[in-house]
Simulated assay, not measured.
Amino acid sequence: MNVSVLGCGRWGSFLAWYTNRVGHDVMLWGRPGSKNLESLRLERKNEYLELPETIKFTDSLEEAVESAEIIIISISAQQLRSFLQTVSALPHIDEKIFLLCMKGLEAGTGKRLTQVFKEEMGAGCHVGVWLGPGHVQDFRKGIPNCMVIGSDEIEVTKKTVEAFNSELIRFYYGQDLIGNEIGAATKNVMGIAAGMLDGAGYSSLKGALMARGTRELSRIIRAMGGNDLTIYGLSHLGDYEATLFSPHSNNRRFGEDYVKGIPFTKLAEGVATIEALHHLSEVYDVELPICSALYAILFEHKETSKVLVDLFLRPVKFEF
Rank of each mutant, 00 (worst) to 15 (best):
C8I: 08
W11R: 01
F14I: 06
W17R: 02
R21N: 14
H24Y: 08
L28A: 04
W29Y: 14
N36C: 09
L37P: 00
S39A: 14
E47K: 10
P52V: 12
S60C: 06
A64P: 07
I70F: 00
I70L: 06
I71L: 11
Q78E: 12
Q78N: 04
L80P: 00
F83R: 00
Q85C: 01
T86D: 07
D94L: 08
M102G: 06
R112C: 05
L113H: 01
V116N: 00
F117P: 01
E119H: 01
E119I: 03
C125D: 02
F139M: 10
C146P: 02
I149T: 04
I149W: 06
S151I: 06
E155K: 15
R170A: 13
K187N: 03
V189N: 05
M190Q: 07
L197S: 08
A200H: 00
L205A: 15
M210S: 15
A211W: 14
G213L: 15
T214I: 14
T230Y: 07
G233I: 03
L234K: 02
S235D: 04
L244S: 02
H248L: 11
R253W: 01
E256W: 09
E256A: 09
K260L: 11
K260N: 13
K260T: 09
F264W: 15
G270S: 05
G270D: 08
A276P: 01
A276E: 10
H279K: 12
I290S: 14
L294G: 10
F299P: 01
E300F: 04
E300Y: 13
D310T: 03
L313A: 07
V316D: 08
K317I: 10
F320M: 13
